[in-house]
């Protein structure tokens, strides 16, 4: 009994030092040397300013400016509206505004909940209002599911190709580009499947939007 207690106490302390300190520090050291970009979150800079992480989704909505010249707020969250000249990410329901990457959360919308249906309907309405003027044949039945369902992390950096193709009509019109050019960029920023078979192809929204800016606004 006493022997077990002594060994247990020494054991938990020694193993805590080895596993809890030495191991993560070694991994951090090697990672920072071998894969500094990845280990630090694949930061993306424009003009030397941090605009986000390549693999963390973000919102491409702009703050709505109220009559007093200041950004409008509702229930302590900024009121935003989609910027039509950018591809829009999937809907996100993190607290403190969409795509809050300091507090990821599941939406926890049940499959048989009225609330889920209502959220879907609202997102469909918004998606159609945004895109239908530029893609007149678009109907509810053609709305890609990922465009109106929230993701797991609510930080999904990608949208489906179908979603991007719908939005391409709007982007082409807003930025006065041909549809073929926009579709070409979509292909360029589409990630392939893992090992060629696992998962789904997805379009990285941040990379795609920054590429568009480079093309039409001349940002670096």
């Amino acid at each position: 009994m006493r022997r077990d207690i002594v060994t247990s106490v020494i054991g938990i302390v020694v193993l805590t030092v080895l596993i809890g300190l030495v191991y993560p520090l070694v991994i951090t050291g090697v990672s920072q040397v071998a894969f500094p970009g990845n280990a630090n979150g694949q930061k993306v800079y424009v003009n030397g300013k941090l605009v986000g992480s390549k693999i963390i989704g973000q919102s491409f909505k702009s703050p709505v400016i109220g009559k007093n010249g200041k950004p409008e707020e509702k229930e302590e969250e900024l009121v935003t509206e989609a910027d039509p000249s950018y591809f829009q990410s999937r809907p996100s329901a993190t607290e403190g505004g969409a795509y809050n990457a300091a507090a990821s959360t599941f939406s926890n919308r049940g499959p048989n909940d009225k609330a889920t249906k209502e959220a879907d309907e609202e997102n469909i309405k918004e998606y159609l209002e945004l895109n239908k003027p530029y893609d007149t044949g678009l109907t509810t039945a053609q709305v890609p599911v990922d465009a109106v369902n929230t993701s797991g992390s609510n930080l999904d950096p990608e949208i489906s190709q179908a979603n991007a193709w719908v939005q391409a009509h709007r982007i082409a019109a807003k930025r006065q580009l041909s549809l073929a050019v926009v579709d070409g960029l979509i292909s360029k920023y589409t990630d392939s499947r893992g090992l060629g078979f696992s998962g789904e192809k997805g379009v990285n929204v941040l990379e795609l939007n920054l590429a568009l800016d480079r093309l039409t606004k001349g940002t670096p």
Binding site: P24, I27, T28, S31, Q32, A39, N40, G41, K43, V46, K49, L50, V51, G52, S53, I56, Q58, S59, F60, K61, S62, P63, L78, T80, D83, Y86, G97, Y99, N100, A101, A102, N209, L210, D213
Partner: peptide, 19 residues
Amino acid sequence: QNFTTYLTAHTVTGLTQSI
């Protein structure tokens, strides 16, 4: 794999994002 504090990004549409 790092020990830096949370990042603050300023997005192209004028929002801030904490990561």
